[in-house]
Design a protein around this nucleic acid. Structure first.
Length: 523
DNA sequence: AATGCCGGGTT
DNA sequence: AACCCGGCATT
């Protein structure tokens, strides 16, 4: 499966070298359009061979056996057949980003293809549903002591593939394009931090802080990270954080299957515009001197540059990507983020306030090509203020119900709140976008678990009104919930110790005697 | 300081 | 599983 996936994923759309059609020996480049199994008994062994349909520079389609073509710009890596060269990448432990770069960096056609690949889209929904759990698992695994042999290997694999993906999407941005290597290094570096040298101690809460540090910062706060060129990509930032933060879940740190899915989800999720926030319109602006042409599509701007400024007259396939240097993307705020926020906050303030987890969303939204950075998004929304006084406005009863509802579903609340607060103290609160609500709500709902406890014991001697207010309090301050999470809220009722006193310790319930939660006078 | 409990250790 | 206890959080 692994292999198959790799091939499928990496080869399609990859730029490869193929023998010159003219036979003059000079290899030409093309983009793999399709792969199929050749049944004919061509090879000596009679084994089936893969046949790659390659779109050549001149626009023609040609078929090659895998032995005939080589992938990547890196000639050394291109020695072997396509498939095997890819495999090497994945199994080779050396953090050598070059190979990945070679095969994945440049082909932006690949990116386009992927985003339109129907199979992946459907498949994605499956993957996505588990991705949260997986992510958690992944994080956990990185901080837990686990036999490294196998895991490391896969991790490296992931690093590379992911890095490649990132690079791929980045490659179309003129601003970052030049120092691609740097970007890749930064990326893999931060990952590694988490993976092997995780500063977090296993099993302790502190690891929570690490959640965000591994994905969010590296992916977003990195100033050199430009937003991806394609609008469809704009939601990518959301994903990463949601994954990192939420991931509650049982998870065998070393489960290869999960790992794989994880990897695939990471790769395939991105191009799917599903979650995309539609309030942003992406335009592409030509940066050529004295030419401020703005087009709505990347293809359009590329063609414009290619034909007008570069004087080339072939279609996109013969481009070497140079156009990318001459345009930049601009994000236009059609219906401002503020709108979305303001409309949201009144509805369920409590839900909004807690989700500092989406530190990611904000950055993503405001993150524009380095050059044009309208700080608008963050400024426009001060609903921020609402977040601080959420409860006061909404009907308590409503909240009550809502939370009761979800409390049971909650899994691991994860320390999203805390981590997020670190991450983007100022901006975090402003960051919730409607898009996100789904992902983070899950994570922060869990804390209310505590609350569940209170509800369950209506028999309590105390007035319901009291209880209710308490509950509300808990809800209104999600951050606290975190604490509640780790430790059961101290029951306010009398306990064996109080009732019987130390002198009658033998009358205590066993739990009390054992310094456990009292079983006799439960709250 | 007293309590209530969790996490962990020991038997 | 029963039993204990260190240590932390809350009161």
């Amino acid at each position: 499966m692994h292999t198959r996936r790799l091939v499928k994923r990496s080869v399609l759309g990859s730029r490869v070298y193929a023998p010159s059609p003219t036979g003059d020996g000079a290899p030409v480049t093309g983009v793999v359009q399709a792969v199929k199994q050749e049944n004919r008994d061509l090879s000596a062994a009679g084994a089936r061979r893969s046949v790659y349909t390659v779109l050549m520079q001149d626009g023609s389609l040609k078929e090659f056996f895998e032995e005939e073509i080589a992938s990547g710009f890196n000639h050394t890596a291109a020695k072997g057949p396509l498939k095997s060269s890819l495999k090497q990448n994945s199994s080779n432990g050396a953090p050598d980003g070059q190979k990945v770069e070679g095969s994945c960096l440049s082909p932006e056609p690949a990116e386009e293809q992927r985003s339109t690949d129907g199979k992946r889209v459907s498949r994605d929904s499956d993957t996505r549903s588990v991705s949260l759990l997986e992510q958690k698992r992944k994080v956990v695994s990185s901080s837990i002591d686990v036999p490294h042999a196998r895991r490391l290997e896969e991790e490296v694999d992931m690093d590379k593939v992911t890095a490649a993906m990132v690079l791929t999407s980045l490659s179309t941005s003129p601003l970052v394009r030049s120092p691609p290597v740097r970007v890749s290094e930064g990326l893999s570096g931060s990952w590694k931090d988490n993976g092997s040298a995780g500063p977090f101690t296993p099993s302790s809460n502190s690891s929570s802080g690490g959640y965000w540090s591994w994905s969010a910062p590296s992916d977003q706060s990195n100033p050199s990270t430009p937003s991806p060129p394609l609008s469809a990509d704009s939601f990518k930032p959301f994903r990463v954080p949601s994954l990192g933060g939420v991931g509650p879940g049982p998870a065998g740190p070393e489960d290869p299957i999960l790992d794989e899915q994880d990897g695939s989800s990471l790769l395939f999720d991105e191009p799917i515009p599903r979650k995309r926030k539609n309030s942003m319109k992406v335009m592409f602006k030509c940066l050529w001197k004295n030419c401020g042409k703005v087009l709505s599509t990347a293809a359009g701007i590329q063609r414009h540059i290619r034909t007008i400024h570069l004087g080339r007259n072939c279609d996109s396939d013969c481009s070497d990507g140079e156009e990318d240097f001459y345009y930049t993307e601009i994000k236009l705020n059609t219906d401002s983020v503020a709108d979305g926020l303001s409309s949201l906050s009144p509805a369920s303030p409590s839900v909004l306030s807690p989700p500092p987890p989406p530190p990611s969303p904000l950055p993503s939204v405001s993150q524009l090509p380095d050059s044009h950075k309208p700080t608008q998004p963050s400024d426009t929304k001060e609903p921020h203020a609402c977040g601080t006084t959420p409860l006061s406005r909404s009907a308590p009863s409503a909240l009550y119900l809502i939370h009761t509802d979800h409390a049971y579903q909650a899994t691991a609340p994860v320390s999203i709140p805390s981590s997020s607060s670190n991450n983007s103290a100022g901006s975090a609160s402003t960051s919730f976008t409607p898009t996100n609500s789904s992902s983070f709500s899950i994570s922060w709902q869990s804390p209310p678990v505590t609350f569940t406890g209170t509800t369950v014991s209506p028999s309590k001697s105390q007035g319901f009104g009291d209880q209710r207010s308490q509950t509300i309090a808990v809800l209104s301050s999600p951050p606290r919930a975190t604490a509640a999470l780790s430790r059961k809220v101290r029951g306010e009722g009398k306990k064996c110790r109080k009732v019987y006193g130390m002198e009658n310790r033998d009358m205590w319930c066993t739990a009390c005697r054992w310094k456990k939660a009292c079983q006799r006078f439960t709250d």
